[in-house]
């Protein structure tokens, strides 16, 4: 039963990901990406990782994708000289260039695949520790691997430094965005700037 659900959503995720690359209309690309993200969330559910699944939907589908769409809808690509009908930007690459790209893509794919296979053997970091720390209903059977409590405990104990570093990174990004937006406004006093 798990396999059937996995197969459906894995196929959907891969097909939609292909759609992101193949589709010519940028809004179709965005919708395909949305389908792909939601399918991956379903795959997380198959792994009992409810929290990650929900966060995947909330952050990527509900937040990031809406902003993508926002930008796509505002920027008229055809006006900016991109020939959407041809489906590419710039001149057609030579055969040598294309071969080079294919080799690079294959090498990267092999690297990711080998890492994935290798990680199957590794124990989940901190899993045993979380099991002892957590005295909830899921402590015994380890079923709630993605549970909110579990992730929270690990995040604020073993992984505190990376967690805080990630939040500093996000803060830097936010401040950077504000600085860029403000400079834009100063350069063009006629435009009121984005609301």
């Amino acid at each position: 039963m798990e396999f059937v659900v996995f197969a459906i959503f894995a196929a959907l995720a891969v097909l939609a990901a292909a759609g992101v690359v193949v589709a010519r209309n940028p809004v179709y690309c965005a919708v395909a990406l949305l389908v792909s993200l939601l399918s991956v969330a379903a795959l997380f559910l198959v792994l009992w990782a409810e929290f990650i699944a929900v966060v995947q939907i909330m952050v990527y589908a509900g937040g990031v994708m809406v902003l993508f769409l926002f930008v796509i809808m505002l920027v008229d690509l055809e006006q900016r000289g991109f020939d959407l009908g041809a489906g590419r930007i710039g001149p057609r690459p030579s055969a040598f260039e294309r071969g080079l790209w294919a080799v690079a893509a294959l090498a990267f794919g092999a690297l990711v695949l080998s890492l994935m296979v290798r990680s199957l053997d590794l124990p989940l970091p901190g899993a045993d520790r979380a099991a002892t720390m957590l005295q909830g209903p899921y402590a015994a059977d380890g079923r709630g691997l993605g549970n909110t409590e579990w992730i929270g405990m690990l995040l604020y104990t073993d992984w505190l430094v990376p967690f805080e570093l990630a939040s500093v990174l996000l803060l830097v990004a936010i401040i950077g965005a504000v600085v860029l937006a403000r400079r834009d406004q100063a350069d063009a006093p006629a435009g009121k700037g984005a609301a």
């Binding site: 949305l34 939601l38 409810e50 929290f51 929900v54 966060v55 939907i57 909330m58 589908a61 509900g62 937040g63 994708m65 809406v66 769409l69 709630g144 549970n147 909110t148």
Partner: peptide
């Protein structure tokens, strides 16, 4: 287990 978060994430899809 993630009831509230589920509601919030699903309703954030509605904006699409």
């Amino acid at each position: 287990n993630v009831g509230i978060l589920y509601v919030i994430s699903i309703s954030s899809i509605g904006v699409f």
